[in-house]
Design a protein around this nucleic acid. Structure first.
Lengths: 206, 206
DNA sequence: GTCTATATTTGGATAGAC
DNA sequence: GTCTATCCAAATATAGAC
């Protein structure tokens, strides 16, 4: 059941539909007219509730990322408490919450694709918004990785983490496609391990 | 030296600049006005040479993909000629030509990012164009992978290949960023092996 | 082939009634 | 909070002179 019309407020209908359409057509590609038509609300409602398209986009992120990053930090703290934790443990703390959110509901499934878009977009304002609000999460993970990979200098570490984070996000975005949800759900445990093994190999060596 | 103005025809200037701007802002995000202004040609030139924005986009793909896919098929044929070739060999035939093109010149570097956009875009017309014109290449690779992975049924195989292709494309798009070109160039050999090892791990098992 | 000027459409945003 | 109507800017596309 997608967040269509019934028990949802105008504001939530807009957010749900915007998430879906941004995932499908990109931020520039999805117009406010498409969004309001699909949500069956009035065109002016977007500006009333959010002020601008830009702010609507930010709100789409905020709604999911607050929860996602809380879970990620909780998982990371649990891992860091174990004195002998591994690279795989830290990667698990990063990947699992995203994969779980992506299977919570139809919206979460769309959001991982929105997230993949954000990586692809080089829009200055969007990047600054994400960096300002959620940069500390990535920095905590980077620090945890750095402690486990002392042979890498800072530049090399950040470069690899960027690639790993991008590839993982991309892979999860693919899981976000409707047709494959059962396949991923069935083997979720194996899927997570695959991704992690995948990423750990890239982070170790040279 | 980017394909700015000097020894390039109007048509080629447009293609070069469009490639860069599509990589940076997406297909919907980069307007024809931005493109023609940056290429220092007249606004009407795009429609004269290409007919429409849609056709310009297709031409940006055609220019690079014809060459890239020829190299990929050549490499695959060379691999298939060896009776005892491995999964890694096939992956190499897929990855190496793209990585080499991405380091040929500034345009190739932008193009891998355009390619990553194409994966993210769910635009019907663009997907059909790519599938119609270059689908046979992917099918040949899929067949080669299938022979090496007989334990996977067709659905499972295609699903994994899609994820692997997406992740590799994403990783290479990151390499396409300007700041990191030397780093990738220096260790190109190691980089390729990393990516391949990465992908092979995902394709094997369960 | 290239330019200027313009037609046409689409999109973001706002004013003001209810 | 929601709607209608409208404004204004930006974008694609074309017509016609050079």
């Amino acid at each position: 059941m997608s967040p269509g019309q019934p028990g949802f407020s105008t504001r939530e209908r807009i957010l749900g539909v915007a998430e879906t359409l941004f995932a499908r057509h990109g931020f520039a590609g999805a117009s406010l007219r498409q969004v309001t038509a699909a949500a069956k609300v009035n065109l002016a409602a977007v500006n009333y509730h959010f002020g601008s398209k830009e702010s609507l986009i930010e709100e789409v992120f905020r709604r999911r990322l607050d929860e996602l990053n809380r879970h990620r930090l909780d998982a990371l703290a649990a891992v860091a408490a174990k004195p002998e934790h591994t690279l795989e443990d830290v990667l698990d703390a990063f990947v699992r919450p995203a994969l779980e959110q992506s299977m919570d509901d139809a919206g979460g499934s769309a959001f991982v694709r929105v997230l993949a878009r954000a990586y692809a977009e080089h829009d200055e304002r969007l990047r600054r918004f994400l960096s300002d609000n959620y940069g500390h999460v990535l920095r905590e993970f980077a620090a945890a990785f750095g402690r486990l990979l002392p042979h890498l200098d800072k530049d090399e570490l950040y470069w690899r983490l960027d690639i790993v984070a991008g590839s993982l996000t991309y892979a999860m975005a693919d899981f976000g496609m409707i047709k494959r949800r059962e396949a991923v759900g069935e083997h979720r445990e194996r899927t997570v391990r695959h991704l992690i093994h995948f990423a750990a190999a890239g982070l170790r060596a040279p």
